[in-house]
Design a protein around this nucleic acid. Structure first.
Length: 419
RNA sequence: AUGCAUGAUAGC
């Protein structure tokens, strides 16, 4: 049994979910029981690999074995979190009921997991109910509890409420952490309320929460979106003066900001800086660069970046393709765009709904409405679910072609919710 | 060392 234990833990740590699961099963087949902890470790890694169903399978086995390995609060936390990450919210609440029936009391961490899950699925109000419930059960919320809620508010744009929440935490002697402040800073940045975001940056340092790259990255993002690139660049310097190390996300943010303003030389010097610092660019970094070059009409440079991605073992994603196709279309290179779309289908690559919509828009603006309509059928065939953008694009095209009635017909079919 | 909170890119 010890042998198995020694095998399984490292596998879990290495995220080898399937192997861990198989070895656990082999162990039990040979008559060793293992422990709840060991089962939990496997359930944990299965959940993190999005194999929640397998994780549930192990949980059910644990129940069947009766007395041997009794699922504990940690088992439930893992499962609930895994389910919530896959938006299986109903299953998660069912499990919570099951947990209650088995006499397992929710503890602080399991409440935190649930509260977080509710927040990320836009149900902050329900989450707040849970906060009250936990207090009634004489559990003391921690900084993690409050931060999860505050982040939910912040992401929903309710930053003023989130700020009140922060003040209340402090009153209740629960000290905010750097994560708490970061959530708030991010919220203000998303709304482009950069003055308030900046004062929070000052406040957090004063309170002993040292800003990190999770603080700076949203600030840089916000300044870029506001067209205050120079403030963004200033913060890039400031963070290194504070001995913080920008990572690929931070670099991608500033590179994207620069690309969107067509400051391509500066963007590529950040690429150079990344190379010097052994920070590898990822697909997001490349997507931003590709977009930048295309918007500046530099197709060749864009394609060069696309090739460079492959060399770095970086797989193009739906963003890459839509960026490329959109760029082609906007430059009037419609035939190239269509060609690329066909090639992708031939290779079994799925361009994604946005890429289709870009080409559809290009076609309809060139008066090639029939081809645009055909594209809708192809999308459906490829199981790319059209969005309201897709239909807006098509309706726009139909109107351009003076087929107003057909556009109205499309609207009347109610295949989408108009905006 | 069995579980919890924060950051980036594309289309009308």
């Amino acid at each position: 049994a010890d042998t198995y234990t020694c095998l399984i833990y490292p596998l879990c740590k290495a995220r080898e979910a399937d192997k861990a699961k198989n070895i656990l099963q082999e162990m039990k087949f040979r008559g060793f029981r293992g422990s709840t902890r060991l089962h939990n470790a496997v359930i944990c890694v299965l959940c993190k690999s999005k194999k929640v169903n397998d994780a549930v399978g192990i949980y059910r086995e644990m129940l069947r074995e009766e007395e041997e390995n009794i699922p504990d609060i940690v088992t439930y936390s893992h499962l609930i979190q895994g389910m919530c990450k896959l938006k299986m919210v109903d299953e998660a609440s069912r499990l919570r009921e099951e947990m209650k029936q088995r006499g397992k009391m929710m503890d602080v961490v399991s409440y935190n997991v649930l509260i977080h899950a509710l927040c990320v699925t836009n149900r902050v109000d329900v989450a707040r109910g849970l906060l009250e419930e936990m207090v009634m059960n004489s559990l003391t919320p921690t900084v993690v509890t409050y931060t999860a809620l505050l982040d939910g508010l912040s992401k929903g744009g309710k930053v003023d409420e989130a700020l009140k929440f922060l003040r209340r935490m402090i009153e209740r002697d629960c000290l905010p952490s750097v994560v708490t402040y970061n959530s708030l800073v991010n919220g203000f940045c998303k709304l482009n309320r950069m003055d308030e975001a900046s004062s929070l940056l000052a406040e957090m340092s004063n309170r002993g929460c040292m800003p990190d790259i999770f603080t700076y990255t949203p600030l840089i993002w916000g300044f870029c979106k506001k067209g205050k690139l120079n403030d963004g660049l200033r913060l890039m310097e400031e963070l290194s003066h504070k001995n913080l190390v920008a990572d690929v996300v931070t670099y991608s943010v500033i590179i994207d900001g620069l690309c969107k303003e067509s400051r391509l030389d500066e963007a590529s010097s950040f690429m150079e800086e990344m190379r010097e610092k052994d920070c590898l660019p990822n697909v997001v970094t490349f997507n931003s660069l590709i977009e930048g070059y295309l918007k500046a009409g530099k197709i060749h440079a864009a394609v060069e970046q696309f090739d460079k991605m492959a060399k770095l073992g970086c797989t193009p994603d739906a963003f890459t393709y839509s960026t490329l196709l959109n760029g082609f279309c906007k430059m009037g290179k419609l035939n190239e765009a269509c060609h690329m779309l066909n090639e992708m289908s031939a290779k079994g690559l799925v361009p994604g709904i946005v890429a289709f919509t870009c080409v559809m828009d290009g076609l309809s603006k060139e008066g090639r409405i029939q081809e645009a309509e055909d594209l809708l059928d192809e999308m459906l065939r490829m199981k790319c679910e059209p969005t309201v953008y897709t239909y807006n694009t098509l309706m726009n095209g139909l109107c351009i072609a003076n087929r107003i009635e057909d556009a109205q017909k499309l609207l009347a079919e109610k295949k989408f919710s108009p905006n």
